[in-house]
Amino acid sequence: MRSNKKNLARNTKRDRLFIFFMLAPGILLVALFCYYPFLSGIPYAFKRYSLLNLSRTKWIGLKNFETLFTEKEFLQTIPNTIKWVFISLILQFTIGFMLALFLKNKFRGRGIYQGVIFFPWAVSGFLIGILWRWIYNAAYGPLNALLIALGLVNPANPIGFLSNLDTAFPSAIATNVWYGIAFFTITIQAALQGVPTELYEASEVDGAGKVYQFFKITVPYIRPVLILSTLLRSIWIFNFADLIYSLTRGGPGGTTEIMTSYMLNLIIFQSNIGKASAVGLIIIVLLLIWSTVYLKLSRFEEEGDF
């Protein structure tokens, strides 16, 4: 890795062509289908643009942003989103990591178990939302029925998971964690399998215990994977609006509304593309800041990995 810097001046012409051709297809496709539409859509953020009356479209500069930052409903989504991302992420990561460690060594039925763990990813987000909506339902949902059968809940007073102002957000997070564990389990497990066993054997000779091995060998070795997967996952959690939409519609009383689901509402219920695009821009700026800070803090660059 130290040799990277030395190679800077030494890419041959052949190498440069090689680099170009290996990168070109991906970059072209992404530029065409991701960046071009996005950049075309940015101007809307500065316009009054509603699908309800297209003829009244006009340039209004920063007005959309002004409206958003003085709107109670939008401002409420900021703390909601922060809680949503961080709590879900930390829980998913910890549990996923733990499961990955358990699954590191081969045992009978491990393959089946991995298939089972991955169930939540096998269907679309909307289905997870409506399924859990049913499960959490206090009147005819299985979760309450189970709790009543176990004697933990009074039948006349079932727990309104999604209808109680205090339990709705934790319930949504629980569903999100249920969903996201698999990502970390599979990713970390794959990374763990790449750790050369010689490293462990060498350290055992030196008398290292399991905990030492874990923190001084395992974690540093898979660090790039950990950092990247956490970053990506945090961005995806941030953008997981369809779960909120199908699960709670942002309710009750707006307690589970996050920034991306708020943007979804603007599009679906208000047809206000201008304002929605403004929210979109705010989202991108926030995520950019987050990514930069996160990568700097985790000293990703110092490893020479960037």
């Binding site: 339902n137 009147a139 309104g160």
Partner: peptide, 9 residues
């Protein structure tokens, strides 16, 4: 109505 119905679709 059940308490849960405040969130019913």
């Amino acid at each position: 109505s059940p308490a849960d119905s405040v969130a019913w679709l």
